[in-house]
Simulated scan of single mutants.
Amino acid sequence: MHQSLPIADDRHRKNARQRARQANLGRVLFLIASLAFVVVLLIQVLHASGAIATGFSDWRPVLYVYLVWGITFGLRQVLLHGERGWRALFLLPAVLFTVAVVIFPTLFGFYIASLDWNLSSLDGPRFYGLGNIIGLFHDTYYWNALRNMVFYTLAVLGEYAVAFGLALLLNADIRGRKFFRIVFLLPMMLSPVAVSWMIGKSLLEYRFGPAATLARNLGWDNPAFFASPWIARLSIEAMDAWVSIPFIMIILLAGLQAMPKEVLEAAKVDGANGWQSFWHVTFPLMLPVSITVLIIRIIFKLKLADIVINVTAGGPGGATDTVSSFIYRVYRDRSNVGYGTGLAMFYLLLIIVLLSLLMRLSHRWTQKVT
């Protein structure tokens, strides 16, 4: 019995030394792969920017080294953590894919934003530092587009109110409920580009469009829906809302159908009328669903561009411009890749800050109400 204890201790020490050697090997391999990846990436970035003459003809070596780095990272996890490392390997492809298609393009976008790169120039890209970011602070058209986005984003609350009303209607026991559910979902099945031409270019056409003809018969002398700034904004918002309200409605309808019926029946037994039952029972219970669909809708609203580009091209005088449509014109009309990317990166940072604040405030509000 006493002799078996030293043998067990020796085995334990040997296993510990073996694990330590494996861990050190994993760290060394990962360090070498990381240094190689950083060196190859730095050489290619400097070569692409014209800072050095030595480099690669394309970005394939960077991709190859990145794949080797990913394999080495997985090997490191196995050598360091054993069984836990093997389990972590199942997440590695998703992590590498996210880095490749999200993080790296974002970092590359910041790199392009630091260049003075105009496709119409024969000089090619050259390093410009923070020049593009400084320039956007003096761009009145960009800030006008940002102000328009405040209006379009706040209009989401109106879309939510209409969608909630439709969801309550379709959740009630009314005749033809299935038919109306299909009819109200039809706008969501259309492309925003099709809506732009069907409504913006046809229905609201100021000479022969049906809406313009009806407005003229009602006494509007010059029914131009896209000539006045505020009427143009409201027309763009109406078209976008017509496409998007069904999406909000179907999510809210799903939430209403998932609500426990016993709670509503208890409210009726307690003597609550329709409004009290909605405000004190239905709305608080629907708050998590409402916040989720509002945040998703705001994200889509912040990308609004296609309807504006096809109907008004930002006019009149930038009154209907969104940030996305303005950036599109910077690329298309000015061929200014560096400045357009700088505008997009700055807008991305604003979106991240806005959504972070919204999620934090909504979490606090949900806790307070519920």
Rank of each mutant, 00 (worst) to 15 (best):
M1S: 13
H2G: 12
R11Q: 12
R17L: 14
Q18R: 15
R19F: 09
Q22I: 02
L31W: 07
I32C: 09
I32S: 03
S34P: 06
G50H: 00
A51C: 02
S57E: 07
R60Y: 12
V62Q: 05
T72P: 00
G74I: 04
R76P: 00
R76T: 01
L79R: 05
L80S: 07
H81A: 14
E83A: 15
E83G: 06
L89M: 13
F90R: 15
P93N: 09
V95R: 02
P105Q: 05
L115H: 02
S120Q: 15
S121F: 05
S121Q: 01
L122K: 10
P125L: 04
P125K: 04
G129M: 04
L130S: 12
I134M: 14
T140A: 14
Y141L: 12
L146M: 15
M149I: 05
V150H: 05
V150L: 11
F151A: 12
E159D: 12
A163G: 06
A167D: 11
N171A: 08
R175H: 10
G176P: 01
L186C: 05
V193L: 05
A194T: 09
M198N: 03
M198T: 12
I199Q: 00
E205L: 11
F208D: 08
P210G: 10
A212K: 09
R216A: 13
R216K: 15
W220H: 11
D221T: 14
D221S: 15
A224W: 13
F225R: 00
W242E: 11
I248G: 01
L252D: 05
L253T: 01
G255W: 01
P260H: 05
K261E: 13
E265H: 09
A266Y: 04
G271S: 03
N273S: 03
S277H: 03
S277N: 10
W279D: 09
V281A: 06
V281R: 02
V281M: 01
L285H: 02
M286K: 01
I291N: 11
V293F: 00
L294A: 08
R297H: 13
L302E: 04
K303M: 11
A305I: 01
A305N: 09
T312R: 04
A313L: 07
P316A: 03
T320E: 09
V323R: 01
S325A: 12
S325L: 03
R329Q: 14
R332D: 15
R334C: 00
V337N: 10
L343T: 06
A344P: 02
M345S: 01
L349V: 15
L350C: 08
I352G: 07
V353T: 06
L354M: 12
L358M: 06
S362G: 12
R364P: 00
Q367S: 10
K368G: 04
K368N: 10
K368C: 04
